[in-house]
Design a protein around this nucleic acid. Sequence first.
DNA 1: GTAGGGTTAG
Length: 774
Amino acid sequence: MDLSQLRACTSTRRLRSIHAILISSGRIRDVFFPTTLVSLYSRLGDLRSAALSFAHTPNKNIFSFNSIIATYIHHGLPFDAGRCFRSLLLAGPRVRPDEFTFPVALKASLDLSYGKAMHSLVRKLGLGWNVFVSSSLMHMYSRFGAVRDAEKVFVEMPERDSGAWNAMVSGFCQNGMAADAVRVFSAMVAEGVRVDRVTFASVLPVCAPLDDLLLGLAIHVFAIKQGLDVELFVSNALIDMYAKMGCIEGAQQKFDDMLDRDLVSWNSIISAYEQAGKPHTALELHSEMQKSGVQPDVLTLVSLASAVAQQGNVLSGRSVHAYITRRGWDTDDIIAGNAIVDMYAKLGVVELAQRMFDKMPVRDVITWNTLLTGYSQNGLADEAIDVYETMEQSEGIRPIQGTLVSVLPAYSHLGALQKGMRIHAQAMQIGLHSDVYVGTCLIDMYAKCGRLNEAVALFEKEIPRASSGPWNAIIAGYGIHGHGKQALRIFSQMEQEMVKPDNVTFVSLLSACSHAGLVDGGQRCFHVMQTKYGIRPVVKHYACMVDLLGRAGDLDAAYGLIRTMPIEPDSAVWGALLGACRVHGNVELGALASEFLFEIDPENVGYYVLLSNMYAKTGDWDGVNDVRSLAKRRHLQKTPGWSSIEVNNKVNVFFTGNQSHPQYENICKEAVILLAKMKSLGYVPDYSFVLQDVEEDEKEHILSNHSERLAITFGLMNTAPKTSIKIFKNLRVCGDCHNATKFISRITEREITVRDSNRFHHFRDGICSCGDYW
DNA sequence: GTAGGGTTAG
């Protein structure tokens, strides 16, 4: 019985019988045999026999320990490997870890301090000279984010082979230092170090973060020259590189060229199509993959979850979820769990997202972000904020960029300035306040919470402005505050600074122009967008244009644009026309727009209200009743209007005609006094905003019970004289209330700001900043 | 008798 006989053994059964012979012949007492058996059992996947063989090894030497440690590592059991390593340390002075032990044993380190202890042991034993040991140390450091320590090991190595260089490249890459990774790679090539497949697999992933397709192509060519592009790992990395650079053809080409593909190849190409917005192809490739006999893993399913989310198919979503659950991945794998939360959130079924979230045994910051974003993007700002505040209470979870980017819009939406400012402070603490994405959200938040000056200051001094995001935010900010000319000025500055506008820029610009009545400016933008920047208008741009033309009174042009637009108008377009008809009293065209709206978006009560409003204004009570009964037949209820005001850090919410506020009686008394003063200055109630066919007295009462009026009166009573008052209204401010507020600002010498669902109105000394144009 | 550095993801 010698080594070659043992090596030839390819079945567990045969190996066991040899094992038995070795025991009966007594040769098992030679440490060589049981140690070899450990490796052989391990290779055949028989972990139990390997462990037994190790346990029964007499006079274990370093080979015995190295074999069993490697066995556990290769079977994904770092904990057991660590246990064996510790018993090696306790085995006495005769057996000591050697240069073969550490490369494997280091994989068992669970945290940085454990790894550092291993490193000092390496130093004590004088094993740092070995390239395998040192590269493993580098790998360990990189794994725990201590890439600088890895670099130190690298620099101090007496000699470096390709493996060491590769470890340095991937160390930088895994820690997001793509530029350094490329630097090391170039140095490696320059110094004539042999590159191998691992080099290419390590360096290719840096191209995407650097957004450098040329680099990727150059590396690809270099790999071809080395004859390494056909290697499986390299091919897979190439597929991914092309996919991430948005070059789906390149990815597909590489995939087609491959002779044999593994799971990673399939996963990469599936994810490539999913991320290219082609979920259908992704799903097709998945079935092809199964036909070719490759079984999906967690990552396959993660891509599928995103694909079905994109398709908007809840049923497919549920079946993907069921598949993941059947495999037990939903609770075992945090990424799979997160993917399910994300999938349901994107499908708009936040309840299921929340249910998955609740079911997860472990959650990380991505889990929280995903749920938070889910609520935020489904318009549930309150819930999003709840999630954020609960997250803050949970131990070990610290917000990251994505967290702030998700929560800030929720505060913007609610106009919660104080809370938004708290996030600003947190961003400063974690050094994210001048991050472009966070900064853009901060600009948006300040603008939408009424602090345009702060928004401008951030834009001017704090936030990098090489990309369109911050520009779009500040343009939109000027827009909702009615400063259309400023918005246009910023846009020409943007052109001067050579920042490329995108379609969002033009949505912001057009709506800024429409709020300010800048018809010419808006039309110029609409033109420039197409001719100079080659941006084809989407339906949102048309909605802005219809709004712009319509509100300025050119209803014919607005309707003409709708009729000639090359894409199907949606509810926003017809809604803009209807709104303009309301302002300019064109009942006929308004009724026409409504017909489309009741068809396209039958659930939106706002349109029914607008139309009945128009009929009411002309005294056409039959028309009012028709619209109302239509809404009733469709079981629609008017969205309750509410206004809120923050006084002494407490938010007071008022509903129209709502009498539940503790100060309601006093507010009414105050309102009566105020109304008398207003009338003496010439205020005349505009009853056309009353939708009920009732007596005039009653109409006056209804108007002064509008939520914004209650909130303003409450504010006057509960804040110091001369201080300004800020009100938020969920719908558009009522025309009569708008007029009334002008009088109130004059009588009380107060500055009153009303943010409605559309824009800001700043009232001061009887004038509104919008110039009564909104 | 044994070893390191590698590709896909929420």
